[in-house]
Protein backbone atom coordinates (compact mmCIF):
# COMPACT_ATOMS: atom_id res chain seq x y z
CA UNK A 1 0.00 0.00 0.00
CA UNK A 2 1.78 3.06 -1.29
CA UNK A 3 2.35 5.75 1.31
CA UNK A 4 0.35 3.85 3.92
CA UNK A 5 -2.94 4.87 2.33
CA UNK A 6 -5.27 1.86 2.28
CA UNK A 7 -6.07 0.65 -1.21
CA UNK A 8 -9.72 1.39 -2.01
CA UNK A 9 -11.98 -1.68 -2.05
CA UNK A 10 -15.31 -1.08 -3.76
CA UNK A 11 -17.94 -3.84 -3.47
CA UNK A 12 -21.52 -3.55 -4.67
CA UNK A 13 -24.40 -5.91 -5.41
CA UNK A 14 -27.11 -4.19 -7.41
CA UNK A 15 -30.02 -4.76 -9.79
CA UNK A 16 -29.14 -1.87 -12.06
CA UNK A 17 -26.51 -1.98 -14.76
CA UNK A 18 -22.98 -0.66 -14.21
CA UNK A 19 -20.72 1.48 -16.35
CA UNK A 20 -17.32 -0.22 -16.62
CA UNK A 21 -15.57 2.89 -17.95
CA UNK A 22 -16.95 5.11 -15.18
CA UNK A 23 -16.03 2.60 -12.46
CA UNK A 24 -12.52 2.28 -13.89
CA UNK A 25 -12.09 6.05 -14.05
CA UNK A 26 -13.29 6.39 -10.44
CA UNK A 27 -10.78 3.79 -9.21
CA UNK A 28 -7.80 5.16 -11.14
CA UNK A 29 -8.49 8.83 -10.29
CA UNK A 30 -5.81 10.15 -7.97
CA UNK A 31 -3.66 7.04 -8.00
CA UNK A 32 -0.42 8.31 -9.52
CA UNK A 33 1.41 5.12 -8.47
CA UNK A 34 -0.76 2.97 -10.74
CA UNK A 35 0.76 1.72 -13.98
CA UNK A 36 -1.89 -0.83 -14.89
CA UNK A 37 -5.61 -1.33 -14.64
CA UNK A 38 -7.38 -4.51 -15.72
CA UNK A 39 -11.12 -4.37 -16.22
CA UNK A 40 -13.08 -7.61 -16.59
CA UNK A 41 -16.77 -7.70 -17.46
CA UNK A 42 -18.75 -10.95 -17.34
CA UNK A 43 -21.71 -11.05 -19.75
CA UNK A 44 -24.87 -13.11 -20.07
CA UNK A 45 -24.57 -15.56 -23.02
CA UNK A 46 -27.59 -16.63 -25.08
CA UNK A 47 -26.33 -20.26 -25.21
CA UNK A 48 -26.90 -20.54 -28.95
CA UNK A 49 -30.24 -18.72 -28.90
CA UNK A 50 -31.70 -21.07 -26.27
CA UNK A 51 -31.67 -18.59 -23.43
CA UNK A 52 -33.89 -15.53 -22.96
CA UNK A 53 -32.49 -14.52 -19.57
CA UNK A 54 -30.49 -15.52 -16.54
CA UNK A 55 -32.00 -14.80 -13.16
CA UNK A 56 -29.45 -14.17 -10.44
CA UNK A 57 -30.28 -14.79 -6.80
CA UNK A 58 -27.95 -13.83 -3.94
CA UNK A 59 -27.62 -14.03 -0.18
CA UNK A 60 -27.94 -10.38 0.85
CA UNK A 61 -25.25 -9.41 3.32
CA UNK A 62 -23.09 -12.48 2.86
CA UNK A 63 -22.63 -11.85 -0.88
CA UNK A 64 -21.17 -8.41 -0.19
CA UNK A 65 -19.15 -9.69 2.79
CA UNK A 66 -17.66 -12.60 0.86
CA UNK A 67 -16.70 -10.48 -2.16
CA UNK A 68 -15.15 -8.00 0.28
CA UNK A 69 -13.07 -10.78 1.87
CA UNK A 70 -11.93 -11.98 -1.55
CA UNK A 71 -11.02 -8.44 -2.65
CA UNK A 72 -9.04 -7.70 0.51
CA UNK A 73 -7.14 -10.97 0.10
CA UNK A 74 -6.32 -9.97 -3.50
CA UNK A 75 -5.12 -6.51 -2.43
CA UNK A 76 -2.81 -8.10 0.12
CA UNK A 77 -1.56 -10.92 -2.10
CA UNK A 78 -0.89 -8.90 -5.26
CA UNK A 79 -0.16 -5.51 -3.61
CA UNK A 80 -3.01 -3.93 -5.54
CA UNK A 81 -3.58 -0.18 -5.38
CA UNK A 82 -7.32 -0.62 -5.61
CA UNK A 83 -10.03 -3.10 -6.49
CA UNK A 84 -13.69 -2.83 -7.44
CA UNK A 85 -16.13 -5.72 -7.77
CA UNK A 86 -19.73 -5.13 -8.77
CA UNK A 87 -22.21 -7.99 -9.21
CA UNK A 88 -25.70 -7.64 -10.60
CA UNK A 89 -28.75 -9.61 -9.47
CA UNK A 90 -32.23 -10.10 -10.88
CA UNK A 91 -33.11 -10.95 -14.48
CA UNK A 92 -30.41 -10.25 -17.04
CA UNK A 93 -30.93 -10.68 -20.79
CA UNK A 94 -28.27 -12.06 -23.15
CA UNK A 95 -25.64 -9.44 -23.87
CA UNK A 96 -26.23 -7.79 -20.51
CA UNK A 97 -23.56 -7.22 -17.90
CA UNK A 98 -23.38 -9.61 -14.93
CA UNK A 99 -20.16 -8.82 -13.11
CA UNK A 100 -17.38 -6.25 -13.16
CA UNK A 101 -13.92 -6.52 -11.63
CA UNK A 102 -11.42 -3.67 -11.85
CA UNK A 103 -7.90 -4.22 -10.49
CA UNK A 104 -5.38 -1.41 -10.15
CA UNK A 105 -1.66 -2.05 -9.64
CA UNK A 106 1.77 -0.56 -10.26
CA UNK A 107 2.47 -3.17 -13.00
CA UNK A 108 0.38 -5.28 -15.37
CA UNK A 109 1.04 -8.77 -13.95
CA UNK A 110 -0.37 -7.86 -10.54
CA UNK A 111 -3.41 -6.22 -12.16
CA UNK A 112 -4.13 -9.25 -14.39
CA UNK A 113 -3.55 -11.71 -11.53
CA UNK A 114 -5.62 -9.64 -9.09
CA UNK A 115 -8.63 -9.50 -11.41
CA UNK A 116 -8.33 -13.19 -12.29
CA UNK A 117 -7.97 -14.22 -8.63
CA UNK A 118 -11.06 -12.24 -7.62
CA UNK A 119 -13.13 -13.77 -10.45
CA UNK A 120 -11.99 -17.34 -9.70
CA UNK A 121 -12.88 -17.02 -6.01
CA UNK A 122 -16.05 -15.05 -6.63
CA UNK A 123 -17.43 -17.78 -8.92
CA UNK A 124 -16.95 -20.55 -6.36
CA UNK A 125 -17.29 -18.78 -2.97
CA UNK A 126 -19.61 -15.79 -3.32
CA UNK A 127 -23.24 -16.76 -2.67
CA UNK A 128 -24.91 -16.16 -6.04
CA UNK A 129 -26.98 -18.64 -8.06
CA UNK A 130 -28.09 -18.51 -11.69
CA UNK A 131 -31.41 -19.78 -13.00
CA UNK A 132 -32.04 -20.12 -16.73
CA UNK A 133 -35.08 -18.79 -18.57
CA UNK A 134 -35.56 -20.17 -22.06
CA UNK A 135 -36.42 -18.35 -25.27
CA UNK A 136 -39.48 -20.59 -25.79
CA UNK A 137 -40.98 -19.15 -22.60
CA UNK A 138 -40.30 -22.13 -20.38
CA UNK A 139 -38.39 -21.80 -17.15
CA UNK A 140 -35.18 -23.74 -17.08
CA UNK A 141 -33.32 -25.08 -14.11
CA UNK A 142 -30.61 -23.82 -11.87
CA UNK A 143 -27.19 -23.67 -13.47
CA UNK A 144 -24.89 -26.40 -12.14
CA UNK A 145 -21.56 -25.50 -10.59
CA UNK A 146 -18.64 -26.47 -12.82
CA UNK A 147 -15.63 -28.55 -11.78
CA UNK A 148 -13.54 -26.34 -14.09
CA UNK A 149 -14.38 -23.36 -11.85
CA UNK A 150 -13.16 -25.27 -8.78
CA UNK A 151 -9.94 -26.14 -10.60
CA UNK A 152 -9.47 -22.50 -11.66
CA UNK A 153 -9.67 -21.49 -8.02
CA UNK A 154 -7.35 -24.26 -6.85
CA UNK A 155 -4.52 -22.98 -9.02
CA UNK A 156 -4.16 -20.02 -6.62
CA UNK A 157 -3.62 -22.15 -3.51
Amino acid sequence: MAGGVPAPVVVRVQREDFDAAAETARLTAGSAAAGAVVTFTGLCRDEGGRLSALELEHYPGMAEAEIGRICRTAVERFSLLGIAAIHRVGKIAPGGNIVLVVALAPHRHAAFDGASFVMDYLKTSAPFWKKEHFADGSQGGWVDAKDSDDRAREKWS
Partner: peptide, 10 residues
Protein backbone atom coordinates in the same frame (compact mmCIF):
# COMPACT_ATOMS: atom_id res chain seq x y z
CA UNK B 1 -27.38 -20.48 9.48
CA UNK B 2 -27.69 -20.61 5.70
CA UNK B 3 -28.01 -23.72 3.54
CA UNK B 4 -27.54 -23.46 -0.21
CA UNK B 5 -26.32 -25.28 -3.32
CA UNK B 6 -22.86 -24.80 -4.85
CA UNK B 7 -22.53 -21.21 -6.01
CA UNK B 8 -22.76 -20.19 -9.65
CA UNK B 9 -22.22 -16.43 -9.76
CA UNK B 10 -19.82 -14.42 -11.86
Amino acid sequence: IALFPPMTGG
